[in-house]
Design a protein around this nucleic acid. Structure first.
Lengths: 232, 232, 232, 232
DNA sequence: GATGAATGAGAATTCATTCAT
DNA sequence: GATGAATGAATTCTCATTCAT
């Protein structure tokens, strides 16, 4: 599902692993930010978006290794040649899914963390927001926590680096609160972050859109649990 | 032909999902904990154990789909025929890994939950214990949360059912404490369990044996976080 | 992606039973009679024809189950990938052989049966013709009567349906003659057809091209036997 | 089904291809002629009979190559070791099935041919009898005409020789009648025999025990057709 | 007589990727 | 930009047979 409000995207689609193309990389955002599915109004969505949407759905449903390139192109209604025109390899598609989710969450965390409000408010909102955006992108999230080892080693490294940046920003909020005395300092802040993010990853395992709780309710509950756990 | 009713069994595997073998040689849940690797004292470990140990290591390292049967048998020092003599399919090995961890954790949870102590003590100990046993079986845990979708549908169903039983037992401790007024009743108990178990699954992503914290320290911290989150 | 509605097709095979390919590239019954072997004049024959020719020869020589896909592709001078590009499975090749013979014989029977001649002439000619075409396609015929059970159940059903159509058309000639008093009505017409076709199938067991009798002579003898058996 | 009235059998079961056994061949008929299924009255049938019965059923149902030794021993309720104790190889079982049917039919043909009656009576009775015994042993018959190429070359040769002997005896009846002027001499007698036996083989393709015609009725019809075809 | 664990060769099929057009 | 035929290596699984007990 599209997440409204996202500002900029850098290149959904476009060769990233630079296999053989001499023409240089495609421009960032070329295929239109936010267009994640086959369009309905203005004709069919551009090919790269269709491919990303199909790949996301299939990787989430059956896993990366169990999804063949043939299945992706059939679901997207294009040919194999077209896929390899836009993406250097199957694993580029996966990397792009990782990048899309990471960019989205980093952008949102940065926005919350930079606000001028008490740290407990900022943490609560960040903690709740990541729950909502995770539920809104549950396919991406499922792929995320399940398929890291299916990325090529270099891509894994890149993803881990981005992930760490995110983790650190979140951890700094915890540490700031602990230093300021508003949070209990007993637990190492890295561990607090892992505690919370375990639960966030876990969402894709148990959350059902047709369940009792709305995404926002889940988010509020989980943020409450975190904040209560941090009470001095 | 299988001889049902035979008293002692050496093997741990045995066709479970086997296509043609109708006899079904095995009771669920063999392999006896503690015989998990190639033996050193009394000669080499039995073939099924060697296969399970090799499979566990490899599935954890490179993922289920990226581990070939050939690699498993080479690592175990047996032939493919031997593997298929004991296990009906590659996916039987995976199922057995699931079963082993599930049985272990269920047994331990049952023991803690049945004690005659205040509910907050029982929950704390159960919450900490599952962290320690997860870290002690980190390969199993990594496989667990990553490879569910690689099990055959029926096996997934079976695993989910066992998982649910575990979840419910844990949840009942939370609910008991909430009814008794020792835990904050604001969060639905199912959600509390998912919160904690997200973090437990997540351990296999970040915990390093050579890190700063011992398994017990991590366990105590995570149990503290849970109990603090539940304070009224 | 398959492009339905495409006018001309070169290939003869094409996935029919293909698991994942939903597009279904092919209309039943291609391969065009007459293009049955590796071409000599205009360069090598197309890959699907080469595969069909190799498969026909090998299935006839050693039987379907004793012929490996590897042997077929080696005999055809292509790779396994090429085979599976055109045929969804080994059993598709077999089905295609069945289809080719069935179409050929049905077309010829229809032509004879529709003529404006006395029914005894039409039956005699049809009975003799099927002998000649069977001898002309003795490999197909041998495969036909030996390998039905090696087709997948659905394909068996399809073949049986076509076979039944053929049988019924032939039987109707017999019944017509019986009603008209030119044939002895003592034997149920279905049984007459099975009598004759048993002998036709049996040809592949005993007929040798280097034997004393030409195909036409055999055909005339067998048609005579049938017609004499039917004399009132 | 057992065919009552059969006089002697030479060794159903027993090593025939003499693979490795030093102890010499088992005595003919050792396991009791006519006992083709698991006994009910006097306890279970002997192991070789159980194996032959299981193999016959399975080879007929799914074909020789598609029946595994494992399936046979499971169906017979014995172990693999037991099978290899009684039979030198899987293909020995097949050979034994061929031998059993060939012996049966040869014995009966010999009996009919030796009678002191007009040749047309003897031929009619022989032609009808082979139909009845074929229907009574339809599994054997189906295996017979489908699996010749699955026998080892030497066994094929042996079977062909026995088959030829049978064919010749039958052919001699036809020739005798042609010489005597009671049969039409237009058709070579070998061809007449192949005409009839094609239909006999074909029985296993179309005859259904629950159909309209009894075995004897089918036999009479087919014998009538043959005799009418031979009318001068 | 009988067992059943183990072998090892070979089976069909899948699949990401390339490349001439 | 886009096609789709072709590759070739790898994959899971099967199976008749052997042999120590």
């Amino acid at each position: 599902m599209a997440t409204p409000g996202t500002a900029s995207r850098t290149g959904a689609g476009g060769k990233q692993s630079g296999a053989k193309q001499s023409g240089g990389k495609r421009k960032a955002g070329k295929h239109g930010a936010g267009q994640r599915d086959a369009g309905t109004a203005d004709g069919p969505a551009p090919v790269p978006q269709r491919l990303m949407a199909a790949a996301t759905r299939l990787f989430s449903e059956r896993g990366y290794d169990r999804t063949s390139v043939q299945e992706i192109v059939e679901a997207a209604g294009v040919t194999k040649g077209a896929l390899y025109h836009y993406f250097g390899s199957k694993d580029d598609l996966l990397h792009e899914i990782y990048g899309r989710l990471l960019r989205l969450q980093q952008d949102r965390l940065d926005a919350y963390a930079d606000e001028e409000r008490p740290v407990e408010d900022r943490l609560r909102h960040a903690a709740a927001d990541v729950v909502v955006t995770t539920i809104d992108n549950l396919d991406d999230a499922r792929i995320f926590f399940r398929s890291m080892h299916q990325l090529s080693p270099e891509k894994q490294k890149a993803v881990r680096a981005e992930r760490r940046r995110y983790h650190e920003r979140f951890r700094d909020l915890v540490a700031e609160g602990q230093r300021g005395g508003v949070f209990n300092p007993a637990t190492p802040p890295d561990l607090v972050v892992d505690y919370h993010f375990g639960s966030v990853h876990h969402l894709s395992t148990w959350y059902r859109p047709d369940g009792k709780l709305t995404p926002q309710e889940v988010a509020d509950h989980l943020a409450d649990l975190l904040l209560r756990a941090l009470r001095p």
